[in-house]
Structures are given as structure tokens and as C-alpha cells.
């Protein structure tokens, strides 16, 4: 369990994190969302003991990150932003160094390194120096380093930033395969990632908590939640659609003869819309119910909060 308690970080001019409090339980994959400069990385740096909070604190399974830093750090695997590694070392040398620092010796050390290497598929580049690797491989080295000691807490700062779609998919699969018994916190500004891997999303901006819920709950805050999009062969009767019970409004889409019918909060309008379509005998080529648009929720929440 991670308990974050009124965590605050003030740099010379600005308040980066402002009395942030929340808890994370084992088994949760927490997506940490926010615009650039929202305080995501700063929060992660405080959780891992890299930065000292100005006030407030965090406890990792009961270990206070300021007073019992080493004990807390033993439980954490951390991938810093940009996955910095010692570029002049080989992948093997680097991972053996990390294993050594984590207290593994001899055969145990070799097993740990081999295990991490297999999990992120680094076998081919094991004896190359890290500087010569592609961005995707470097990121995987960073991940291997973080999961090597099978930590109870995994903190990943933008783990898929700059990766190609296949690599992103691999990283997400890896995160999901690890998720069962761990606490995983990932920061990202890629919203599809949250829906893909996270069981919980926390949105912050300007250092303050704006929303905390499952990705589904966040989506349902969208004005597009339960909206119905219609694509017809001929112009559709907007007024009739707008007059249906539970409808909040109708929006035109750039595509020809395409409308999106918005639902009032908490209402389900699909039956009414489809009944109207049947009654009028419209030829409808596509008809979709939306779950909600996370990017729209994100924009609404964070608008004007950060640069």
C-alpha cells in the first residue's frame, strides 16, 4: 500500500505539487495523468526518494520515504523519465550492476539478470553497449532494471514515450502481466494507454488532484458518454433527434450526413434513437454508442490549469 499524505513540493518560484493525497493498493495499476508541468514527475521523484518533499510525506508499505528511505527504496522499481542508463556499459554489465546494488550475489544475481532479460526480450543485445542501442531497446533496458528485483511497487515515468506502436503494445502487455500482485504507477499523457492498462486514473494539474476514478468513471464524465453517432445516406432530421427524451443536443460531424446525438448525464438514449430511425425509415450505414471521450474529459478538467 502506498499512502500519499498532503505531499507538497515547492521550487523557488512555483508550487509543483500542492497537498496531494491519495492511496494505492496492491493489484492496482494507477495511471497518473496530467498536462506537461502538472507535477507528475515531481510526485514520482518524491515517491522514490529522489526529491525531498517541502511538506507532507508518503509511505511505501508503511516505510516513510523521508525517514526510512532505503527500506522504501528496496521495495520500489523505478524507471525515471527518459530511462537514463550508463551508456558506456554493456546491457549485461549494467543489469549485473543493478542486481549487485539490489543485494544479489553469485548465482542469484545471474538468475535475476536472466529473468529480467527474458521478460523484456533483451537477449539479442546483451553484450552491446547501451549507447549503441535504439530508443526502444534502451527503454527496455530501463524496464529490465526496474523489474529485476521483482519489486512490490513499480513506478514508471512515461514508459512508452517515444516508442513505436509495436513496442508500446509490448510494454503494455508487460505491465499487465506484472500487475497481479504489485502496485504499478505509470505516468503518461497518452490517454489510450490509460484505457488499455490502468485500473484507476488520477488526473492532476497545477500540482492538485482533479479527478480520481476508474477509466470508465472518467469516461462517463464526458459529454459524449452514451452519445449515439449516426451516419446516414441522406440528410437526417436534426430537430426530431433533438426533441427525443433524454437528448442534450445534436452535433454535426465533418463527415457527410453524420450526426452525434448527445445524452443528458445519466441517460441512455440508444433505444429512443433507434426507435426513431425505424419509425422514419432512415437508411443508416453506421450507428455507434460512445463510451465517452477521455481526451475531452482531460481537456475539460485541466483547461487553464497549466501551461
Amino acid at each position: 500500500m502506498i499512502e500519499i499524505d498532503k505531499l507538497t513540493k515547492r521550487f523557488a518560484q512555483q508550487l509543483a505539487v500542492d497537498e496531494l493525497s491519495f492511496r494505492v493498493r496492491p493489484g492496482e495499476v494507477l495511471g497518473f495523468l496530467g498536462p506537461n508541468g502538472a507535477g507528475k514527475s515531481t510526485t514520482m521523484k518524491m515517491l522514490t526518494g529522489f526529491l525531498a518533499p517541502t511538506s507532507g510525506t508518503a509511505r511505501i508499505f508503511g516505510f516513510d520515504i523521508q525517514k526510512q528511505t532505503l527500506k522504501a527504496q528496496r521495495l520500489i522499481g523505478y524507471l525515471p523519465e527518459g530511462a537514463p542508463c550508463y551508456g558506456d556499459m554493456t546491457v549485461r554489465g549494467f543489469l549485473e550492476f543493478i542486481a549487485g546494488v539490489r543485494g544479489f550475489r553469485g548465482a542469484q544475481k545471474r538468475d535475476r539478470v536472466a529473468g529480467a532479460v527474458a521478460q523484456v526480450e533483451l537477449e539479442k543485445v546483451l553484450d552491446q553497449s547501451i549507447d549503441t542501442l535504439s530508443k526502444g531497446f534502451k527503454r527496455r533496458v530501463g524496464l529490465a532494471q526496474a523489474i529485476l528485483h521483482d519489486p512490490k511497487v513499480l513506478i514508471l515515468d512515461e514508459p512508452t514515450d517515444g516508442l513505436d506502436p509495436n513496442q508500446k503494445h509490448q510494454v503494455r502487455q508487460l505491465i499487465q502481466s506484472l500487475a497481479a500482485d504489485k502496485i504499478i504507477i505509470i505516468s503518461t499523457h497518452i490517454l489510450e494507454e490509460v484505457t488499455a492498462v490502468c485500473t484507476r486514473a488520477v488526473v492532476i494539474a497545477g500540482g492538485r488532484l482533479l479527478a480520481d476514478g476508474t477509466p470508465f468513471e472518467l469516461e462517463s464524465r464526458s459529454r459524449y458518454h452514451q452519445a449515439v453517432t449516426l451516419v446516414g445516406d441522406a440528410p437526417l432530421d436534426e430537430a426530431a433527434l433533438a426533441g427525443l427524451p433524454g437528448v442534450a443536443g445534436v452535433e454535426r460531424n465533418p463527415r457527410e450526413h453524420s450526426l452525434t446525438v448527445l445524452a443528458l448525464p445519466g441517460q441512455v438514449i440508444f433505444p429512443q434513437v433507434s426507435a426513431l430511425v425505424a419509425a422514419r425509415g432512415w437508411h443508416i450505414r453506421e450507428m455507434d454508442v460512445e463510451r465517452g471521450r477521455l481526451d475531452e474529459v482531460f481537456r475539460t478538467l485541466t483547461r487553464g490549469e497549466a501551461a
Binding site: G49, F50, I98, V101, Q145
Partner: peptide, 9 residues
């Protein structure tokens, strides 16, 4: 890499 080094135990 200092961030890596300083977050190791």
C-alpha cells in the same frame, strides 16, 4: 543517471 543512482537503495 543520477536519478537512477539516487533511487537505488
Amino acid at each position: 543517471t543520477i536519478e537512477l543512482l539516487m533511487t537505488l537503495p
